[in-house]
């Protein structure tokens, strides 16, 4: 975190090198607002790290010496080890299901013209406006009927379903960008449609699949409401519910809460570091030119 904090300053030192950008903006007009916004972004991250590694009762703003007592506590006493496993399971399975189902549907939307296509597209767009948060009661009933309450399967299904529309629209955009003639050439060479798809489309879809898959993972990892409503056993709960429980306690143990938050952030930070360079290009390549 400290290394990253110094970045704007270091960059400012290099600012002498001229830019060829059209309509140059003076350095000061970039680094000053950027520095302020970086402070707003980074201080909260620093704050949670600080609370997670400094001993209980300390009010020092520099966490030294650091302690791992809070991590020990949340991981074992507060069952975050279990929550972590559950969250990981939900995240990975929803990611795989969302991507596969959306890939099939997205391919159909991109490559075929069929009778209910317009209606189906419209349904996808409309379902963007249907909030999961308002559907808790009927969803609860359905999962009760299916005997899935208190099973991670209910959360996996709910997360997958509510991510499908956007994922499918995004993937069909990415697929449209892969020239159809490439696939046709593969058919001429004797490939079946499926083999042609695997050989030609799939490799070109890599950025799109990474974008859609990681959205799905991050979203399911982060999502709180379905797990809160459909899982009542403590052993079945996920990290966000565990965090909410820590916050809801009568006297909040701030150190444990901060450590729990850091644990919750780790997988997301890893995924984000991995995808962030695709974030902007992924949206523009796959969607905007769709």
């Amino acid at each position: 975190m400290t290394a990253t904090l110094t970045a704007p300053g270091k960059a400012a030192a290099d600012a002498g090198t001229g830019s060829t950008m059209i309509g140059r903006t003076p350095r000061r007009q970039i680094y000053l607002p950027l520095g302020l916004y970086l402070l707003f972004t980074l201080i909260p991250f620093y704050w949670i790290l600080l609370f997670a590694v400094r001993p209980t009762g300390s009010t020092s703003l520099v966490p030294w010496p650091i302690t791992f007592e809070h991590f020990d506590k949340v991981w074992t006493e507060r069952s975050f080890a279990t929550f972590f496993q559950n969250s990981l399971l939900v995240g990975v399975v929803s990611m795989v299901m969302t991507t596969l189902v959306a890939l099939a549907g997205g391919y159909a939307l991109a490559r075929f013209d069929f009778r209910i296509k317009r209606g189906f597209m419209l349904a996808l767009l409309c379902s963007q406006f249907i909030p999961g948060a308002l559907m808790l009661v009927p969803l609860f009933e359905i999962f009760a009927e299916l005997r899935m309450i208190n099973s991670l399967a209910s959360v996996v299904i709910a997360e997958t379903v509510f991510q499908l529309p956007l994922s499918m629209i995004l993937l069909s955009g990415f697929i449209k960008n892969v020239p159809y003639v490439l696939e046709e050439a593969a058919w001429v060479d004797g490939c079946g449609r499926f083999r042609a798809f695997c050989a030609v489309v799939l490799p070109a879809l890599r950025p799109g699949l990474i974008a859609v898959g990681s959205f799905a993972f991050v979203h399911s990892w982060n999502h709180f409401l379905f797990a809160l409503m459909f899982l009542s056993d403590q052993g079945k709960q996920t990290i966000p519910v565990g965090l909410a429980t820590l916050m809801g306690a009568d006297s909040v143990d701030l150190g444990a809460l901060a450590a729990g938050g850091v644990v919750a952030a780790v997988p997301v930070v890893i995924v984000f570091a991995f995808i962030q360079k695709w974030l902007v290009t992924g949206f523009s390549a796959g969607a905007v030119k769709g």
Binding site: K10, A11, D14, L34, N222, P240, L243, G261, V268
Partner: peptide, 26 residues
């Protein structure tokens, strides 16, 4: 265009990936 742009982008975008509950925690 400025020096350190890629890093600056990654940093200012990072809260995008943070959940509502974790935001509350922080």
């Amino acid at each position: 265009t400025f020096v350190g742009r890629a890093l600056a982008r990654a940093l200012v975008f990072s809260p995008w990936a943070v959940s509502g509950v974790l935001t509350s925690t922080i």
